[in-house]
């Protein structure tokens, strides 16, 4: 029996309505990556993580449990689970299963990104525990009423801090803030740019030349929905990285399967496996630019090819 769409969507929407995130996490977990970086609180320009990198270890732990349930009679209990979740934040318990090593790994990627922005001479702050999830998943699933309320909440937060420019770190938050928010929040005029766009525009120069050969996995959202294809290639190219592109790349990139993880884990893994095979054919290690792509492809590749975040290579090349 497939996972019950109605109840899972209900839990995600309830969490966003009640706890301001589809998978609520403690501020200690969402801000841990910034410890010791001395980023100022707030400011006109801010880095905005949207909690995506921080959520991956929790999603990963949760996905393992959900996949076990996909063909189990327990799926009938999800309706009851939704009612319990209204009273008790069940995600909190899932968070306890998250691997410490994986959390440290994803925190490091965020530190890479902040370090790269500093090297590029960008001045930016961070909202720390006040930062909110973007609402991306609820938007994708078409739960527009809950999404509209949440978008307004995030917009009010930006207003409160006088934020005029947001630097995002992942495609989902970029797309939600840049393309969806203006359709849902009247007068939303905050400038939204991905850190890869900001770095490319800065004209920053690498501090060392690398001899790496990489296959770049384009995110569907960056490439097709946000028209961002050249910037990561420019940054890697300047640092001497040789790109071995898979057949499906740039605007014709192939999805990693990640968007289906919460409702159809088996199908999600099938799509991820197909993409991992395509990337393996290049004979190179893979760089991704989205935490969801990263976790999906790493699991599908099962170590047969190394998949890393592009920020690891950029940090090495640009002296972070």
């Amino acid at each position: 029996m497939p996972l019950p769409t109605k109840d899972i969507l209900g839990i995600l929407a309830d969490n966003l309505n009640q706890r301001k995130s589809v998978l609520p996490m403690s501020a200690a977990k969402t801000t841990r990556w910034a410890k010791g970086l001395d980023l100022p609180k707030g400011g006109k320009t801010i880095i905005y993580t949207g909690h995506m990198y921080q959520l991956i270890p929790v999603i990963d732990a949760m996905a393992g449990q959900m996949a076990k349930l996909e063909d189990s009679p327990i799926t009938k209990m999800f309706g009851l689970g939704r009612n319990v979740n209204k009273l008790v934040n069940m995600t909190f318990f899932m968070g306890l299963l998250a691997s410490k090593a994986e959390q440290a790994d994803y925190d490091r990627m965020l530190r890479n990104i902040a370090g790269l922005l500093k090297k590029a001479g960008v001045e930016f702050g961070y909202l720390y525990g006040e930062e909110l999830y973007s609402g991306a998943l609820v938007y994708d699933e078409g739960i527009d009423g809950s999404f509209a309320k949440h978008a307004q909440r995030v917009c009010d937060l930006f207003k409160k801090h006088g934020v005029t420019k947001v630097i995002t770190v992942d495609p989902h938050t970029t797309h939600t803030l840049r393309t969806a928010y203006p359709q849902f929040v009247e007068g939303f005029d905050v400038e939204v740019k991905s850190y890869l766009e900001v770095l490319a525009e800065s004209g920053m120069e690498p501090t060392s030349q690398l001899s790496d050969e990489l296959a770049l996995h384009d995110s569907c959202i960056y490439a097709r929905h946000e028209n961002m294809v050249e910037q990561p290639r420019e940054l890697l190219g300047k640092a001497g990285v040789k790109l071995n592109e898979p057949d499906l790349c740039g605007k014709n990139t192939h999805c990693c399967g990640g968007p289906l993880e919460s409702l159809f884990p088996t199908e999600s893994h099938r799509i991820a496996g197909n993409r991992a095979e395509q990337l393996k054919e290049t004979g190179s290690n893979v760089a991704s630019m989205c935490p969801i792509c990263l976790v999906s492809l790493r699991k599908a590749a099962k170590g047969s090819v190394q998949v890393n975040d592009i920020s690891d290579t950029l940090a090495k090349a640009y002296g972070v």
Partner: peptide, 25 residues
């Protein structure tokens, strides 16, 4: 076909290649 509707990845491969430029996702 509700399951199929929620199985769409919204990846946009379809609309990228659509000659009528339908915003499928």
């Amino acid at each position: 076909n509700i399951s199929n509707i929620y199985s769409c990845l919204l990846c946009g491969m379809c609309s990228e290649n659509c000659p009528a430029e339908v915003n499928i996702p």
